[in-house]
Design a protein around this nucleic acid. Structure first.
Lengths: 251, 251
DNA sequence: CTTCAGCATTTGTTCGGACATAGTTTAAGC
DNA sequence: GCTTAAACTATGTCCGAACAAATGCTGAAG
């Protein structure tokens, strides 16, 4: 029991691995209490500080809940998340290579008809401020896609800002109105180029396209922005990388 | 300098907040070294342990890199990760609602021609074991899409397993051959239905489609599986939700 | 001038101790 | 018997100290 002779790293990592193994093997089932810190100190012949470091690792993996006076409760037998995807910046999430920009075509306040309401997942008749624009790259003459941005009418002021066109709209809303994003949702599906967009996108109507819908939900005003982008074939690829959760070996 | 009288929480959180503020305000620009632990102990009149707890918080937020002998280097002025996406299971990542299954049409060992090599991001001539199949749902008669799975010829044994068709192939490879996934990459772009697939997918050739490419890279044998799926319009939507990283207030 | 050994610096690991705080249990008092 | 206060338990916070390990610098040897 206790020390693993094959393991040469820090003691607290050894102890954490041992606890992880015990939990995975069912020695401490979900709902059961782990031994107290002092008991673990005795079992592993380590100081309380070292044991706490080990418990911190197990807790960060999401297998424990620890409370004063109560103890450490096992809440899972294995780390729950298999893959994670972290996005560093809005640009990265938008997946638009740097050097692209939006070119506003027109703006208007509109009411959602039934079709638009379905796309935006809002009730029909809801009023939105719509910004229609073309996304371009400095490298190629054809536009990358057609973007329709719908924001709550109260937030229409964003178009007046000077950095409009280069900064993501939801960031502008965050700064100007103190909204904070609670969650963002992404949907991607196949579509075809509508007749209206054939000319601005320089592509034949009815040809294959990729539609990307992004919905931003804030804490203050709920869903405050929806972006719909239509990309003609061969002009845009959504790409993403997932990694198994490393679970914090020290870097 | 030092203690913030308005803050009543633990000392290490107070110190962490102070450091965070200093970094955000540019007192320690990116690339600069933070004061050493001992210096911070003096400035905040705290023990090294407490200061280290504070530095751990700042490090976990991704603003610092710490190395023995060197010190703590500032690598960002604000937490870099804005959104995270965690995927709990393969099914969730695949985004196929439960109740769908794969129906194998044919299998063969092939060599990648130039076009396929570009899609798979491998060298032309590389040999792959290809599994062609149709993904169906029990609810609707039309297939959801056409899937071509390419695995290394050494792993061709996966098709013989009984749970083939319901279990993701990369999971089977993990179990059967002890491969462990290092990273997974996803690409989504617009395409059109090839003439060959018009009949099996029950849709007209040339109509819009969504192509999803998934690449799995393992620790042992590098990229060991690539899956290419073609979905006709209106039969499949890729959906994902991102949330702002909570940054570990204590739970 | 280059190379390498040795030293100083800085963070990493581990020990031992003390008190604070939050939950739980027990016991006293009505 | 119920309510409330005290005691107990377990984790949280904080201190002081020592040594280990990685890095960078300096000076001596070739």
């Amino acid at each position: 029991m206790g020390r693993n002779p094959a393991f040469s790293g820090p003691r607290y990592q050894d102890i954490a691995a041992s606890l992880l193994r015990d939990i995975a093997r069912g020695r401490y089932p979900v709902g059961r209490l782990l031994p107290t810190e002092v008991e673990l100190c005795e079992r592993f012949a380590a100081s309380r500080h070292t044991v706490r470091d080990a418990l911190r690792i197990v807790t960060e993996k999401g297998l424990l809940v620890r409370r004063r006076g109560t103890g450490s409760v096992v809440i899972a037998t294995a780390p729950p998340n298999v893959f994670t995807h972290s996005v560093g910046s809005e640009e990265e999430w938008m997946r638009y290579p740097t050097g692209t920009f939006r070119e506003t075509v027109n703006t208007a306040e509109i009411a959602a008809d039934r079709k638009l309401a379905a796309l935006l997942k809002c009730e029909p008749g809801k009023r939105w401020f719509r910004i229609c624009s073309v996304r371009r790259s400095s490298r190629i003459p054809e536009p990358l896609g057609w973007t329709e941005i719908y924001v709550l009418p109260a937030y229409a002021g964003v178009v007046k800002r000077s950095d409009h066109g280069t900064t993501p709209v939801h960031r502008q809303v965050e700064k100007m109105f103190g909204e904070s994003i609670d969650r963002a949702q992404l949907e991607i599906f196949a579509s075809h180029i509508p007749a209206k967009l054939a000319r601005p996108l320089r592509v034949a109507a009815g040809t294959p396209a990729l539609t990307v819908v992004r919905r931003y939900t804030g804490l203050k005003s709920g869903m405050f922005e929806v972006t719909v982008t239509i990309h003609p074939e061969n002009r845009y690829t959504y790409s993403m990388e997932l990694r198994p959760q490393l679970h914090a070996k020290q870097l």
